[in-house]
């Protein structure tokens, strides 16, 4: 079994990497490219913590072969922020206290980001459906749902949104 050279387009940067045919995309991202934002937890497509975007659609990187990812546009959680500035979704997670242990957060962010691209003002039900494939074992879903629904869409009745927008001013 020999390693094969493939080119992956990750966060708008082409990366050349040597992989075995049985390497999953997650293993390549974490072990070869040091993009350790995506997490491995169940390894069988149940928990959602390895979620990344392929061509703007959320997929499980633990069930995607690295070889299958060639020729697609890959975005990991590291690609959400612009430099030091967090995206509005990430900021909203921070503001609303939606991060507890943080293990599910990268997956949650990627699933939510894909939703916000097609629906910028989702209601609670839509958000819950969108993150149905992500499991949070701290069970802090309420705050995550709130953070996604209020990302870039701050609500007057939400104390978290108000406190932080005032603090910024």
């Amino acid at each position: 079994m020999e390693k094969i050279l493939i080119t992956l387009n990750i966060n708008d940067k082409p990366c050349e990497v040597m992989v075995y045919p049985n390497d999953t995309l997650l293993e390549v991202l974490r072990d070869e490219l040091d993009l350790t934002g995506s997490k491995e937890s169940c390894g069988e497509g149940v928990c959602g913590s390895c979620t990344i975007h392929m061509d703007d659609k959320p997929v499980r990187s633990c069930l995607t072969l690295a070889m299958e990812a060639t020729g697609t546009k890959i975005k990991t959680v590291e690609g959400l922020a612009k430099g030091d500035e967090l995206s509005s979704l990430q900021q909203s997670f921070v503001d609303h206290g939606a991060v507890q242990c943080g293990f599910c957060t990268p997956g949650m962010l990627m699933s939510a980001d894909a939703l916000l691209k097609i629906n910028s003002k989702p209601d609670e039900k839509t958000v819950r459906k969108a993150i149905a494939g992500n499991i949070c074992r701290c069970t802090g879903y309420t705050k995550i749902v709130k953070a996604v629904a209020h990302a870039g869409n701050s609500q007057d009745h939400c104390p978290d949104c108000i406190t932080f927008s005032k603090a910024k001013e």
């Binding site: 497509g45 959602g48 979620t51 392929m54 997929v59 699933s111 894909a114 459906k129 149905a132 494939g133």
Partner: peptide, 10 residues
């Protein structure tokens, strides 16, 4: 089948 927004694309 699976999860609405994740496994459906693959």
């Amino acid at each position: 089948i699976g999860a609405v927004t994740i496994q459906h694309y693959r």
